[in-house]
Design a protein around this nucleic acid. Structure first.
Lengths: 112, 112
DNA sequence: TTCTCTTATCGTATATCGACGATAAACGAT
DNA sequence: ATCGTTTATCGTCGATATACGATAAGAGAA
């Protein structure tokens, strides 16, 4: 049984893990940066910008959409993608939350 | 060819993707939270805290160590783990960097 | 309608992940 | 040396990820 959905983990961690996994690929990071840079972008431009086949890029876009990090709207015969700012902000908050309770010691003694 | 190491992606994105992948699992998030909470922790306590076999936990710890998020030092016959604060701080910075160039519009019109 | 352009999905092959039990390795105690 | 404790590694197996080409689906143009 894959533990990714194990009931003993918190819902928060399971959700955050999914979002992190969606980002944990160079191509998908590149897509996010591209969208952040241009605010919006039709799929074709993304394909042209990446060293991957169109079908592969489409899959990566789907992965990002599934966790809500980007959204795409059909525009005539093309599709326009953009970042969902709330989702990225939530991710930022969650990652920051990993610090909570971590006493960043003033000295450099880290461990044991 | 897996594109995770494709030369056309930036070194930054390949590194960040690896770090994100290391975190993109509920068990590893739980480990990070546990270590942040206690500052340090012997392996056995982590095993007791997770619904996983000892060998599985050891693998997860290895994954976190490999990207430098945690460090472990042998203490007699046990091993003490703790978070590497610099690595977590760097991650925070990198994730924040995904916002750069993203104009968070004041209105709610997001896309196209 | 038919053709073209654009994007999504299907099918498939390979690689990696994630789980476990079994075993090795290192240490301290007897 | 032998035993018990603790952690790391090995071997394996099923599931998931990632890539591609081929093809489907939809919109606009001819």
């Amino acid at each position: 049984m894959p533990s990714a959905t194990h009931p003993n983990f918190t819902e928060t961690d399971r959700r955050l893990a999914q979002t992190l996994k969606a980002l944990a690929h160079p191509a998908r990071l590149a897509i996010v940066r591209l969208l952040a840079d241009r605010d919006e972008c039709v799929c074709g431009e993304i394909v042209d910008d990446l060293p991957l086949a169109q079908s592969t890029v489409s899959q990566h876009l789907k992965a990002l959409k599934e966790v809500g990090l980007v959204q795409g709207t059909v525009e005539g015969r093309s599709t326009c993608y953009c970042i969902a700012p709330e989702a990225l902000a939530a991710l930022k908050t969650d990652v920051d939350g990993l610090f909570d309770g971590l006493s960043l010691s003033t000295t450099d003694q880290n461990c044991c």
